[in-house]
């Protein structure tokens, strides 16, 4: 008997939760704000679904009720991707060590 592919996805999901658990506990508390902004950015990988939705129209009608929602989702996710990664970059650039020459 064949195993339902859903089981494989479920396995990936559960294992990723554990990976996330251990990885996030090792994040230093001083970087918890960048952690939130970067998780924000990466969860916007939902844009891949939005792109599929946006391109679901055919050549005669690019815009149908389904693809319009897709395009809107693309814009929202793009705000998050660019905003999230850039603001994280900006924050992380500020974390500096003590200068030795004083």
């Amino acid at each position: 008997m064949e195993i339902d592919p859903l089981i494989f996805r479920l396995s990936i999901f559960i294992l990723s939760i554990f990976v996330g658990y251990y990885v996030v506990w090792s994040v230093t508390p001083s970087l918890h704000t960048p952690l939130m902004s970067v998780t924000n950015a990466i969860s916007s990988v939902i844009i891949v679904g939005a792109i599929i939705a946006g391109l679901s129209g055919n050549s005669e009608s690019i815009f149908n009720s389904s693809s319009i929602f897709g395009f809107l989702a693309i814009a929202l996710a793009a705000i998050n991707i660019f905003g999230g990664f850039l603001v994280t970059q900006r924050m992380l650039a500020m974390y500096k060590k003590k200068k030795k020459d004083k």
């Binding site: 999901f13 559960i14 990723s16 939760i17 996030v24 924000n40 990466i42 990988v45």
Partner: peptide
């Protein structure tokens, strides 16, 4: 799926 699990936890 991986990202969702990471962010969720």
């Amino acid at each position: 799926i991986i990202t969702g699990a990471l962010v969720g936890s």
